[in-house]
Each structure stands twice: as structure tokens, then as C-alpha cells.
């Protein structure tokens, strides 16, 4: 039933002639929840850019299933400092996710507005709709950006460190919300994360990037693997 959405075959990336990722293969199928973990500089961001099509691999190829059109993919990037005090209403931010399906048509249609409203409701931020983005807390801002990502695509969400800078309670809420989107609505998730423990708790597949040997497989296998054992040994 589940079809393969994205398949990476022997992919390598390099930055300034320095190779960051070497010979990596993995795939994401519909309904999967994949967490990409690894230390700083292991190429998580580079790989994300590759999946989004912003950077082409130096070797190998990233194949997207024909079912996955560009307006099926939602993206939650890391926040920039300039964004935190941006004067825009929550609605303006959320509806900007619809742009990818507008093409050259300049104005939003009724359908776009309805979708924005639906996603605002879905993430429980109706009360914030007319507030200014800059007046929101970090967790609220992340929810707004998640609603925008849902406006951009409903089959696959790519989340780049979605809990950075959030307090533990809000972090937990965010993880729950993402899990719910995956389980209840069948949206595939690719999440870049620093937090290996939470990754193993929520995701069903893990990609651990490591320059020498990367791991890709189910979470169960990951915990049993030498790499996973290193992180989860105390729990055993």
C-alpha cells in the first residue's frame, strides 16, 4: 500500500570540494516518519536542501516519485533572527504557504483562504489569527510556521529542527502534534533533529549521518545497532 516517495541512491554532497556526505542511500515511503540525526557538520542541512531540490548532489541521484508533486511538499525551515520580530499577521504568514500552487497567478483564491483557515484550526491557533507574528512566543511561532507548511503540501512535511529554542513542555507538545499529523492524517514526515532520544521515541525510521558510516533503518534496528547502542546503552 505504501509507495516510495523519495529515494536516494548513492548520493554524495560536497561543499567547497570537501565532501560532506558520501555514498548515502535511503528511501522514504508514504506514511513514514523519518528522523535525520547526526552531529554538527554531518550534512543534515545539506541533505535537506538536496531533498528539497535546492542543491544537487555531486554524485548519485535523488528520485522523487511522480506522485509527489512540488505542491505536495511542505517545509518548516529553521527560523532566522530577522523573522522573530517581523510585522505580519498570523493569517498572512500561513496563507503564504499556498504560493507554490499559485504559479504566476498573483492573488489568492477563495480556496487558498479556506485552506489557510482549515490549517489554522487544525493546529489550534484560531485565537492567534489576527495577532502579529512578532508578538507570539517561540512555540506559537512554530505552530504558525507548521500551519504554513501544511498549506504548502499535504503528503510530505520536511521539518528542520522544529524544536530548537523551545522549552521542554512546548517541545513535547510540538512532537505530539507532529506525531498526530503522521498517525492520524497519514502525512509523511522527514525531521532533522539533534535530539536522538526523542527521535527514537517518535520516529519509525532513523537516518544517522556520520561521515564514515551512516545508519539507515527502522528505529528498532537502530537501537540495536552499534551506533544506537552508544546512545541508548544506559537504558538497557
Amino acid at each position: 500500500m505504501s509507495t516510495e516517495l523519495i529515494k536516494c541512491e548513492n548520493v554524495s554532497f560536497s561543499y567547497d570540494s570537501l565532501s560532506v556526505i558520501r555514498d548515502l542511500s535511503f528511501s522514504v515511503s508514504s506514511g513514514d516518519y523519518l528522523c535525520i540525526v547526526g552531529e554538527n557538520g554531518s550534512g543534515k542541512s545539506t541533505l535537506t536542501k538536496g531533498i528539497l531540490g535546492l542543491k544537487s548532489p555531486t554524485k548519485g541521484k535523488i528520485v522523487k516519485s511522480p506522485e509527489l508533486r512540488s505542491d505536495d511538499v511542505g517545509y518548516l525551515p529553521q527560523q532566522t533572527p530577522a523573522q522573530k520580530d517581523f510585522p505580519a499577521s498570523v493569517f498572512e504568514v500561513v496563507i503564504s504557504g499556498r504560493l507554490n500552487s499559485r504559479g504566476l497567478r498573483p492573488f489568492y483564491s477563495k480556496k487558498d483562504k479556506m485552506m489557510a483557515h482549515d490549517n489554522i484550526r487544525r493546529l489550534g491557533i484560531e485565537n492567534l489569527m489576527y495577532r502579529s507574528y512578532r508578538d507570539l512566543s517561540g512555540g506559537q511561532q512554530q505552530r504558525v510556521l507548521l500551519a504554513r507548511a501544511l498549506c504548502a503540501g499535504k503528503k510530505l512535511l520536511i521539518l528542520d529542527e522544529p524544536v530548537t529554542g523551545l522549552d521542554p513542555i512546548v517541545t513535547e507538545e510540538m512532537y505530539r502534534l507532529i506525531l498526530e499529523l503522521n498517525r492520524k492524517e497519514g502525512i509523511s514526515i522527514i525531521m532533522v533533529s539533534h535530539d536522538i532520544t526523542s527521535a527514537a521515541k517518535y520516529a519509525d525510521h532513523i537516518l544517522h549521518l556520520n561521515f564514515e558510516k551512516s545508519f539507515f533503518g527502522t528505529t528498532e534496528d537502530y537501537i540495536k545497532s552499534p551506533m544506537g547502542r552508544y546512545f541508548f546503552s544506559e537504558e538497557k
Binding site: L52, G53, D71, P77, T80, A88, E92, S96, Y108, G153
Partner: peptide, 23 residues
Amino acid sequence: FVFFYNKIFAVTFDENFAKATGT
């Protein structure tokens, strides 16, 4: 600014997102 208002907003607010979604 009238015809590309929405795109200008998207690029100003979040260039990475705009690029990733094809602007």
C-alpha cells in the same frame, strides 16, 4: 508591488521557505 505582493511578502519573510516551495 501590486502584482507580486504575495511573492514579495514570502521572499521577505522567509527566503528559505520561498525557495524550497518554488519561488
